[in-house]
Simulated scan of single mutants.
Amino acid sequence: MDMKQRTTKYSKIQEKIMSEVPVIPLFSEYQYVAARKNIEGLKVSIDSKIYVNDVVKK
C-alpha cells in the first residue's frame, strides 16, 4: 500500500475514533486568582484563561 492510501485510511480511522470516544480528562488543576476589593469585572473561564477586558478599578 502506498503512503497516500495509508494516510487516507489512517485519517478516516482517527476521525471515526474521535467522533465515538468520549473525552475523559486525565487531571484537573486548581487555578487561584486574587484581586483587591476595588477591582471589578475580573473573570476566569473554566479552562483557566483570565479575562481582563472588563476590569475596572473603583
Rank of each mutant, 00 (worst) to 15 (best):
Y32R: 10
E20H: 01
K37C: 14
K12F: 09
D2H: 06
G41P: 00
V33A: 05
S28H: 11
V55R: 13
Q5C: 04
L26A: 06
K4R: 13
R36D: 09
S28E: 14
K43Y: 15
Y51I: 08
K4W: 08
I17D: 02
I13C: 03
V56Y: 05
K16R: 07
K16Y: 14
S48R: 13
R6H: 09
V21E: 12
D54L: 07
Q14C: 03
S19A: 12
Y32N: 14
T8W: 01
T8P: 01
D2V: 08
S19I: 04
L42P: 00
Y51N: 12
L26M: 06
E40F: 03
G41Q: 02
K12N: 03
I17Q: 01
S19C: 01
S45C: 04
Y10C: 06
G41C: 02
A35V: 10
P22A: 09
Y10D: 06
D47T: 00
E40R: 13
I17W: 01
I13G: 02
K37R: 13
I46Y: 06
S48E: 03
P25H: 01
S28F: 09
I50N: 05
I17G: 04
I24Y: 00
D54I: 09
I50E: 02
K37G: 15
M1V: 13
F27L: 13
K57D: 11
P25R: 02
